[in-house]
């Protein structure tokens, strides 16, 4: 589903990705962990080209992102993204946040888009918030709306960029449980997170990144209980 080969990316003179190779299968939940500055968010953002990369290849569902005839907007419809800071549109109601892309990109009529939006809000348990503005939502609610919004285009892949890092601790659970539900439905997910419990419980595979490389990868139980590399051990000893 996702094929990444020798991905390299620099910001000015600082190389943040030094050659990433990874293959992600359909329906797989891949959790990316690592210290801050390890390049994990940049890696995630490259997957829908929010961040351009310098070298290497990314192939999503058979489409090479850098090929000249690739319509990036079409690829992005297939790849939903959830951000650390939610990035809901503050000037629109929750409902309009969700219907906008359906109406403007897919050209659906309003009624059809709203029916779909209500269905997605029900899925994240927030039908009653359809007509409020985002600033009246709690962090957990806002992130659940953001997940519903990212699902509107029925993406095949969902990217999560530290989805619970900006939340108060008591709200982390509600967001993780929505993500768990998605994983159980067979969604292909790439999740950058510091929630090791989630990684262990829901992840099919964990990638540990440091210094622009994938240092170690494996099943959660192997990586967490028997890390091979010194850097992995050092990182895990601080966070577990």
């Amino acid at each position: 589903m996702i094929d990444v080969r020798q991905l390299k990316k620099s910001f000015g003179s600082l190389q943040v990705l030094k050659g990433i190779d990874v293959h992600i299968r359909e329906g797989e939940v891949v959790v990316v962990i690592g210290p801050s500055g390890s390049g994990k968010s940049t890696f995630l953002r490259c997957l829908n080209l929010l961040e351009d990369f310098d070298e290497g290849e990314i192939i999503i569902d058979g489409i090479n992102l850098k090929a000249k005839d690739t319509n990036l907007n079409k690829v992005r419809e297939e790849v939903g993204m959830v951000f650390q800071r939610f990035n809901l549109f503050p000037h629109m109601t929750v409902l309009n946040n969700i219907t906008l892309a359906l109406m403007k990109v897919r050209k659906w009529p309003r009624e059809k888009a709203e029916a779909k939006a209500m269905e997605l809000l029900a899925k994240v348990g927030l039908q009653d918030k359809a007509h409020v503005y985002p600033d009246s939502l709690s962090g957990g609610q806002a992130q659940r709306v953001a997940i519903a919004r990212a699902l509107t285009m029925e993406p095949k892949i969902m990217l999560f960029d530290e989805p619970t890092s900006a939340l108060d601790p008591e709200m982390v659970g509600e967001v993780l449980s929505v993500m768990k539900q998605l994983a159980n439905e067979g969604m292909t997910m790439v999740v950058v997170t510091h929630e090791m419990g989630f990684a262990r419980e829901v992840g099919d595979r964990v990638l540990f990144m440091d210094g622009g490389y994938i240092v170690e990868e494996g099943k959660p139980e192997d990586l967490f209980d028997h890390p091979q590399h010194e850097r992995t051990k050092a990182f895990l000893s601080k966070v577990l």
Binding site: L50, N73, R76, N87, A101, T152
Partner: peptide, 12 residues
């Protein structure tokens, strides 16, 4: 982040 969210939904 507003532009990124919009682009990630497939908007031009």
């Amino acid at each position: 982040g507003q532009m990124e969210a919009a682009r990630s939904l497939g908007m031009t």
